[in-house]
């Protein structure tokens, strides 16, 4: 098992409020790691420190290190724009651009200087196939992405992230706005994607974490309570608070 991401003594502040306290963890290559915890526990905030999306909120501050492939992404040498090419992200609500399906997928590539039409066409085909959307939309890839259903839109957003050839993909509650069938499809997709990518998923659903993740991390009040193999967390947690949460005593 190979460590892809290592977090060391991470603290995060909104103004003077500490939102994350002294987080340490390792995330392994080609595994799915789930973050669970009650709302406001800091799991989404933590997720966003991994691609530095928190920087768009004013008056925030990070202490500590996040190492991806042993390189600290908060070092001065790292350009956040470049980092986000390597660490993709899928959001809570499907947010396709009001453009065609094709333009959605090639958006990031084009903006990063990839102009060759053959390459772009190929990327669109392969990514649509890898998110199992190809058959459904192959006749309308030049139609507006807003015409797709919610579940299809979310898979398109995944395709859009994959098109950038990232190593890591962050999912921020990707199924919370979807119906059960669309949710199932996304979950199946994640299980396939882990062969090629390191996946981190924030989820509000413990069942979802149990179904798809290899590792589960439990957060409470901005602290990492414990992280372990998923079946251990759900069958035999070390910490009393984790047990209380997964047995439904709070949260």
């Amino acid at each position: 098992m190979e460590t892809k991401i290592r977090v060391e003594n991470l603290n995060f502040y909104y103004g003077n409020n500490r939102a994350l306290t002294n987080i340490n963890m390792e995330i392994y290559r080609n595994k799915i790691t789930a973050f669970i915890g009650p709302s406001g526990c800091g799991k989404s905030t933590f997720l966003r420190t991994i691609n530095r999306m928190n920087e768009f909120i004013e008056n925030t501050r990070v202490e500590g290190k996040v190492l991806i492939d042993d390189e600290d992404i908060y070092s001065k040498k790292v350009d956040p724009v470049e980092l986000r090419r390597r660490v993709g992200m899928v959001f809570q609500r499907p947010n396709p651009f009001p453009k065609t399906i094709y333009e959605n997928i090639v958006y990031g590539l084009k903006k990063n200087g990839v102009k060759n039409k053959e390459v772009l066409d190929e990327v669109v085909d392969t990514t649509l196939k890898s998110v199992a959307l190809y058959e459904e939309v192959k006749d309308k890839i030049h139609k507006s992405a807003l015409e797709l259903s919610g579940g299809q839109q979310q898979r398109l957003c995944i395709a859009r992230a994959i098109a950038m050839q990232p190593d890591v993909i962050l999912f921020d509650e990707p199924t919370s706005a979807l119906d059960p069938i669309s949710t199932m499809k996304i979950e199946e997709l994640l299980l396939e994607l882990k062969n090629d990518y390191t996946i981190i998923i924030v989820t509000h659903s413990m069942q979802q974490a149990a179904r798809i993740s290899d590792y589960t991390a439990f957060f409470l009040n901005g602290e990492l309570i414990e992280i372990d193999e998923t079946n251990k967390i759900f069958s035999n947690p070390r910490d009393k608070r984790t047990e209380d949460y997964i047995t439904g005593r709070f949260g």
Binding site: G88, P96, F97, P98, R160, A161
Partner: peptide
């Protein structure tokens, strides 16, 4: 805001 975030998350300036 979610559209702007989506764009930034794809590694754009």
């Amino acid at each position: 805001g979610i559209l702007k975030q989506a764009s930034y998350a794809l590694g754009t300036t």
